[in-house]
Simulated scan of single mutants.
Amino acid sequence: MARTDEPRLDFRSDTRTVPDAGMRAAMTAAEVGDDVYGDDPTVALLEARVAGLLGTEAALLTPTGTMANLLAPLAAAGFPGSREPRLIVGEDTHMSFLESDGLRRFAGVELLSVAQRPDGLPDLDAVDAALAAGGGRPTVVCLENTSMMGGGNALDAGATGALAALAHRYGAHLHLDGARLANAAVALGVGPAELAEPADSVAFSVSKGLGAPVGALLCGTRAYVARARELRTALGGSLHQAGVVAAPALVALERLPDLAADHATAAALAAGFGTVPGVELLDPPRPTNMVMARLAGLTPEQCAARLAGHGVRVLPLPNGFVRFAVHRAHDMIGVRAAVKALAAVAATASKALTTTGGDLIGRGLSTTRTEEA
């Protein structure tokens, strides 16, 4: 039996990478200052590079994407001293079902989850209705790209532009949760700036598919980022000699084109699963590095537990599927092992269904929570 901690068989998240020799060398050689005082040169370089990549005036390094998304509506509302914002999010987004507690508790937002299309774009009619009922509070509309619950679907600039036009008609701020925006850009064959351009702010992770050990950046205008910097201090997110964190992120940015290899590996994984009887796959229009699968008669937790028995680690989701998130540690050896493991689990599930007369798909849907999924 394979080891359950073997990197090529751990598909739980694309955060599961570890810094390689190049990143560790960059950390060792990093020139550092004190980012609390604004004089860490490596952090300054990273922020300038990411702002340039996304076409924004400025960027702010944060420890996590969750903190970037927490800062985003507060900075948009003009804090400190203004009213807490309303937040309109798609019901199947990371901000809605994994970050909502923190947004309500620490940002004091009124969070409104609205219907979402299968591709990940919030339903424009539902957003329109929520905006029309604004009541005078600052409002932030949020979009996630790629759409995690949409199977990692990449949304193009036209989709973002349509949502931005609607938000701006009501004087609202559009925030783009671009945790995997790099994947979307590579899948669509465009620069990240094209996908970010319609938005007023962007959270951009360097610790997911890009493989840096830590960090996300919140990007926007200089004034917006200055407000976010004050808020980051208040939340305890400021770092001192943060150049050792920024250095591997700079290496990660150079590897953005390599995400195409992850997408190809994910496509091979999906093709392999497609040959397994009883497996249902989520089929996004523009796939990236994720594969979602489910088996009749098994809850996501049951499926994940049985796959773990074969050495393959996956993430159970509340939509009835388990997620395979592909990253640079995965290869065709891991793909073949995962397909073999899922085939074994499917055969057992099929036999159980025949014996018991079946079960409801998705019974006991997953309540697994992970802040940095």
Rank of each mutant, 00 (worst) to 15 (best):
Val276Cys: 05
Val89Trp: 01
Pro318Ala: 14
Thr66Lys: 11
Ser350Phe: 00
Glu84Tyr: 09
Leu282Gly: 07
Thr348Lys: 15
Val43Tyr: 13
Asp177Met: 00
Ala246Pro: 02
Gly134Asp: 03
Arg363Tyr: 15
His168Tyr: 12
Leu195Val: 11
Asp10Phe: 06
Gly150Arg: 01
Leu259Val: 06
Leu143Val: 14
Gly362Leu: 00
Ala30Ser: 13
Asp125Ile: 11
Leu307Trp: 10
Arg86Asn: 08
Pro287Val: 01
Leu176Glu: 08
Ala26Cys: 10
Leu235Lys: 06
Leu250His: 08
Ala344Asn: 01
Gly65Tyr: 03
Leu70Ile: 01
Gly334Gln: 10
Val225Leu: 10
Leu210Asp: 01
Tyr37Ser: 07
Gly108Thr: 11
Thr355Gly: 01
Leu163Pro: 02
Val141Lys: 08
Ala76Thr: 00
Leu239Cys: 04
Gly236Leu: 03
Ala223Pro: 00
Ala352Glu: 15
Val18Asp: 13
Ala51His: 05
Arg222Ile: 07
Val339His: 08
Arg24Glu: 15
Pro19Tyr: 14
Glu110Ala: 05
Leu60Pro: 08
Gly274Ile: 08
Val314Arg: 04
Ala261Glu: 14
Ala271Arg: 09
Met1Asp: 07
Thr62Arg: 09
Leu124Thr: 09
Arg363Asp: 09
Arg255Ile: 05
Ala271His: 10
Ser100His: 06
